[in-house]
């Protein structure tokens, strides 16, 4: 669909044209909301809220950025407001101080003999099982980090675009992304043995 045409149609008062935009971007918005908000019953309402807000502010959107970036920004701010209202701590259980132990924690979790016993076939099966453990670890990340890993890895936005969504410089996005992945690794290797992670 040509976004400009659709947006203009909606602005002329054709509400049903807006359905095309919702269909096109409900996954993008869903990724952000379902990642940042853990309460199942609130998620759909929040997705609705994002699209209603976007509709009401559509005339302020002048294609100064991609529609996906603009919608992500609304989704991010809506989630953040929601979390603040619900008094969900904006910094999860993973704290920055665990970074200090970074190198130590990352060292020597697996024995060399264990590692060398891996075969390529094993890895395929292990991948599936480890999925939920990793998803839980992602769940425990601070909201900003969750937003960044989702926008980067799932929705494939650039550092610049993510920076626009979170109102931070692209360089900060890059370093946050690095830290988020490092935190996840630390968290996983702290709490799980190799066997649990891979079996």
């Amino acid at each position: 669909m040509d976004e400009r045409v659709v947006v203009e149609q909606v602005l002329k008062g054709d509400v049903s044209a807006y359905k095309l935009i919702v269909d096109g971007y409900q996954n993008l918005v869903g990724h952000m909301v379902f990642r940042m908000v853990s309460n199942r019953s609130d998620r759909e309402d929040l997705c609705q809220e994002v699209f209603v807000k976007a509709y009401e502010n559509l005339r302020t959107f002048k294609f100064q950025c991609k529609l996906s970036t603009w919608l992500s920004k609304i989704a991010y701010n809506t989630c953040l407001n929601f979390l603040q209202k619900k008094k969900v701590p904006l910094y999860g259980e993973i704290q920055e101080h665990s970074l200090e132990n970074d190198e130590k924690d990352l060292d020597g979790q697996f024995s060399e003999s264990y590692w060398s016993s891996f075969s390529a076939v094993d890895l395929e099966a292990m991948k599936k099982e480890s999925g939920s453990i990793v998803q839980n670890a992602i769940e425990a990340l601070p909201p900003d980090y969750k937003a960044i890993v989702t926008l980067y890895h799932v929705d494939e936005l650039s550092y610049e675009e993510i920076g626009e969504v979170l109102s931070i410089p692209a360089g900060t996005v890059k370093s946050h992304l690095f830290r988020a992945r490092r935190l996840l690794k630390i968290k996983l290797l702290e709490n799980y043995t190799a066997e649990e992670l891979w079996s």
């Binding site: 269909d23 292990m126 991948k127 999925g131 992602i138 890993v149 992945r181």
Partner: peptide
């Protein structure tokens, strides 16, 4: 790191009703 990356790329499971866009409209 590779395993983590794959899990990150998989994204969260989204459960929205099939008529979600109609509901919004």
């Amino acid at each position: 790191s590779r395993m983590l990356l794959r899990s990150l790329q998989a994204g969260p499971d989204i459960h929205l009703p099939v008529d979600f866009s109609w509901k919004v409209v």
